[in-house]
């Protein structure tokens, strides 16, 4: 069962589209797997729509007021739009399948049209960057082969892990597909995956390895970021 969910604040920002693209995509993938959060998002969207179109702001939206702010000719716009009778047919989005270490995985819709880099590998870890050009905020697909683990590390910024398939565990417990795990600088953890897993990760700074000899691994931090 999914135990880790986005905060109410994150869901709200998702509905408003005010998050980085990679975080919005993560929430979208989570609600595809989590009925509970999907229902919350539906309610939040209703509330947002109500506030926009039926709420107190409506009283500022008489035609007269608008004319002062913006000079649009609504009649021209209506004519320009309706001159063409064509309708938009539903395009069924073709599914994107990726192949990683002999596994074939269908990507969730939210990220199916995002460009990805080729895979790079260190040991049992493989990473493919999702190229969204969002500055410091970077998103990746991270695959861990059975028995693989990420050395104990902490985070300078935040790290989001959305488990897409498989499972992993750390000292805080076991995670299943759909779990939405946000960690920041206060946490250290050492994820281990007995059976392998595929994750979508977002972070805004390199990780920092904390334990003894693993400090030598700090180049991996750059790999994972």
């Amino acid at each position: 069962m999914i135990k880790h969910h986005p905060s109410e604040e994150l869901l709200n920002e998702y509905v408003e589209a005010s998050l980085p693209v990679s975080m919005s995509a993560a929430v979208a993938m989570h609600i595809e797997m989590c009925g509970e959060c999907a229902a919350k998002v539906a309610t939040l969207t209703d509330q947002k729509a109500e506030a926009c179109f039926e709420g107190i702001h409506s009283k500022f939206t008489e035609h007269d007021d608008i004319a002062d702010v913006v000079d649009f000719n609504f009649d021209n716009m209506i004519n320009a739009i309706t001159v063409n009778d064509a309708i938009d047919e539903v395009k069924s989005t073709p599914k994107t399948t990726i192949n990683i270490k002999g596994k074939s995985v269908v990507l969730p819709r939210a990220i199916s049209n995002m460009p990805t880099s080729s895979w790079s590998n260190i040991g049992k870890l493989s990473r493919s960057r999702i190229e969204l050009d969002e500055g410091k905020v970077r998103a990746s697909l991270l695959n861990i082969e059975p028995g693989g683990s990420v050395p104990e590390h902490t985070h300078k910024g935040f790290e989001l892990t959305l488990l897409l398939s498989g499972s992993f565990k750390d000292d805080m417990g076991e995670y299943v597909a759909g779990d939405f795990i946000v960690l920041d600088g206060e946490h250290t953890h050492q994820p281990v995956s007995d059976d392998g897993c595929l994750c979508f990760t977002v972070s805004d700074d390199a990780q920092h390895f904390t334990q003894g000899i693993n400090k030598l691994l700090n180049p991996i931090a750059q790999f994972l970021y």
């Binding site: 409506s58 939206t61 035609h63 007021d65 702010v69 209506i78 739009i81």
Partner: peptide
């Protein structure tokens, strides 16, 4: 019916609000 009158009504309801919100 691709009804333009209906569209005009919908437009009149939403357009000022959308303009306001986006401005």
């Amino acid at each position: 019916d691709r009804n333009k009158q209906a569209f005009t009504e919908v437009f009149k309801f939403f357009a000022p609000k959308i303009t306001n919100i986006c401005s």
